[in-house]
Nucleic acid binder design. Sequence first.
DNA 1: AATTTTTTTTAGACAAGTCTAAAAAAAATA
DNA 2: TATTTTTTTTAGACTTGTCTAAAAAAAATT
Lengths: 222, 222
Amino acid sequence: MKFDLSQTEENYLKAIYSLFVVSNKAVSTNKIAEKLATKASSVTDMVKKLSEKELVNYVKYQGVSLTENGREIAIHVIRKHRLWEVFLVRHLGFQWDEVHEVAEQLEHVKSVKLTNSLDAFLDFPRYDPHGDPIPDKEGNFAKRDVAVLSSLKIGQESKIVGIKDSSSEFLKYLDKVEIKLGAAIKVLHKESFDNSMMLWIDKKQISISQQIASNLYVKQQD
Amino acid sequence: MKFDLSQTEENYLKAIYSLFVVSNKAVSTNKIAEKLATKASSVTDMVKKLSEKELVNYVKYQGVSLTENGREIAIHVIRKHRLWEVFLVRHLGFQWDEVHEVAEQLEHVKSVKLTNSLDAFLDFPRYDPHGDPIPDKEGNFAKRDVAVLSSLKIGQESKIVGIKDSSSEFLKYLDKVEIKLGAAIKVLHKESFDNSMMLWIDKKQISISQQIASNLYVKQQD
DNA sequence: AATTTTTTTTAGACAAGTCTAAAAAAAATA
DNA sequence: TATTTTTTTTAGACTTGTCTAAAAAAAATT
């Protein structure tokens, strides 16, 4: 039941998982190739292998989806990735835009005890530094009752809890304008002609474009 | 100057390093093969490759030694291994006989910032949970002024600081008889016919064989 | 519906790391 | 020193994951 997968195999499962959750339908080999910066022909080969191990459902020319086993493994890898990100930011002084590359390596370390002890050491965090939910031991994600900032109405108060685009550029922008996860905000005004928003954030007043607002997640309670 | 080595290459360098320090002469391919649980023919292949990268000195039929570069990398990997061991025992509740396998994986994670931040987080430990010295950023090992327990004379007081044999069996034995690193001891008696020793350790009196005593390191001051 | 374009798969090749079996060199023994 | 034994290397093969180029299928366009 529990295979010993190579890092490459794990990366494929993770890629298929994340592509699947956005489109909710079988993923094309081309999309996977793009995500993993490889070629579609390589993907076809790997997908066949994963299919033999019953980690993905694969029908020629019809895309790929994860089996229950494959999904479990993918989620477990994501869990490790996000826990390590929390550790790096909280305890080792990493910035949130520095953690990804290192977490990509740490996520492949295999030890159930390690993962669960780390989880406990971090006091079972539910979100990573980017606001993405961390699956628990059983693979359940904390449900986020979140909205995109751009959907808030004038007068609403909320809290920034996550970001959609986690590119390094976007993270750097957020740092520059001092928008931090956890920051309390209040919508003061929405400009109807370009949908830019004026808001209070940490006692300061700033204006952000619709572009930015639609890449920030906010939520009401903890 | 700084290559991106595979985990396998790093493991070869580490193996060559540790074999070299005990014998202080060029290491045979057979010994390396034994250490890495592989075949001598595989070692020959790899050693040629490392030689081309100028990480080892290799002359056919005459064994292998590390170049300055190779030595640096080996020590850096050992540094990471031992730092992670400290982290696992101190913060994640691992026993000292559980850490090796996990540290073998963690030691290959590549990030200078990670290593040095971890070092700082742990407050620059000088010894790992087995009492082995941890090289600093520059690759310098803390000098241990240690002796083997069996060399102590009657009446001498000391402290257990390390072990020579770190096999799982030995570690388990130590746990069973409650010999811990850091424990203060005093030699009460030495049996001349079998060299077994009677000692005080943590307010208890125990007798240990010469076998055991010669696998324990002790030292005077910190 | 026929044709063109795009996507996906197949076929064959390559690099890394490993293995077995055989050959070559070194070491041990007679 | 000659011979036997042990160690080390070479040769050729296999696996994993990758690639390019060509073929096949699907989708889009006319």
